[in-house]
Amino acid sequence: MSLVLFVALVVHLAVVSPLLGRRTYAALQADRSRYTRTFLAWIAELWGMAAVALLIVGLSPDLDLVDLGLTVPTDLSTFLGMITGLVIASVVVALVMRKSGAAMPGQAAFEALVPRSGGERWMAVAMSVSAGVCEEIVFRGLLIAMFTSMGAPRPVAAGLALALFVAGHLYQGWKGMIMVTLAGFSLTMVYFSSGSLVLPIVIHILVDIRSLLMARPAARPQPPVREVVGGGAA
């Protein structure tokens, strides 16, 4: 039963989620009023996938939560130091870029997701937390553990998980997917070096919050000004 669920989850991650994500993102670009419903749909999908991942672990005789990296880091002082440094660096960089008017790196790929109001900012926070927790459990935790248990070498398992992670960001286009590949690879290395998903989860949340909440929304296009000549419209 766990294998059947796993195959179904992989098919969803490889095909359904990328295509659905691109479609809903295009709809959001065309209609800004869809912001909240788009985020709620994506958040529900993320927590649904995480629930399926945990169910697969519960049904599998060869896996437990430790295999998914759901364990406390052994060196808490180093962990807290890294998180503190990351928070400070992220805030400083974001404030400098915002003050200068520069866009976040790769912002054009996810511009429609950048919040423009107080309500949208809360939705962006919820989305950042959901993505950080759920995507790490699914992609860095479950996929690597399952592919490894099925006989794949760990680097191959990590590569397959990364490919599925990047596919889920199809809506960002190839430039955005390159950035996602680099981010996913870095999070995988953090996971392997720490042996715990806690640090990748926290980093993922902070990066998403910085990217969404500290980004400067692109200027909205202004309607063309009709030039008046001799008292009549030109």
Score class of each variant (00 low, 15 high):
Phe6Ile: 15
Val7Ala: 13
Leu13Glu: 02
Val16Tyr: 00
Pro18Tyr: 04
Leu19Lys: 13
Leu20Thr: 13
Gly21Asp: 01
Arg22Ile: 12
Arg23Cys: 15
Thr24Ile: 15
Ala26Val: 15
Ala30Gly: 11
Arg32Pro: 07
Ser33Lys: 05
Arg34Lys: 11
Arg34Glu: 05
Arg37Glu: 13
Thr38Met: 10
Leu40Trp: 03
Ala44Lys: 07
Ala51Asp: 06
Leu54Phe: 07
Leu59Thr: 15
Ser60Phe: 02
Leu65Tyr: 02
Val66Lys: 04
Val66Thr: 11
Gly69Pro: 08
Asp75Lys: 07
Leu76Pro: 09
Leu76Lys: 07
Thr78Pro: 01
Thr84Val: 13
Gly85Ile: 15
Ile88Arg: 05
Ala89Trp: 02
Ala89Gln: 10
Ala89Val: 14
Ala89His: 07
Val93Pro: 00
Leu95Val: 15
Val96Ser: 07
Ala102Tyr: 00
Pro105Glu: 06
Gln107Lys: 08
Ala108Arg: 03
Phe110Trp: 04
Phe110Glu: 03
Ala112Val: 06
Ser117Arg: 06
Ser117Val: 11
Gly118Thr: 13
Glu120Asp: 04
Glu120Met: 08
Trp122Ile: 12
Trp122Cys: 12
Met123Lys: 08
Met127Tyr: 03
Ala131Glu: 01
Cys134Ile: 14
Ile137Ser: 05
Ile137Met: 08
Ile137Asn: 06
Leu143His: 03
Ile144His: 00
Ala145Tyr: 02
Met146Ser: 11
Phe147Thr: 15
Ser149Glu: 08
Ser149Cys: 11
Met150Lys: 14
Gly151Cys: 10
Ala152Gln: 10
Pro153Asn: 09
Ala157Ile: 12
Leu164Gly: 10
Ile178Lys: 05
Thr181Pro: 00
Ala183Leu: 13
Met189Pro: 03
Met189Asn: 06
Val190Tyr: 00
Val190Glu: 00
Tyr191Glu: 06
Val198Ser: 03
His204Tyr: 04
Leu206Lys: 05
Arg210Glu: 02
Leu213Trp: 03
Leu213Val: 11
Ala215Lys: 03
Arg220Cys: 04
Gln222Trp: 05
Val225His: 02
Glu227Tyr: 04
Gly231Trp: 09
Gly232Gln: 14
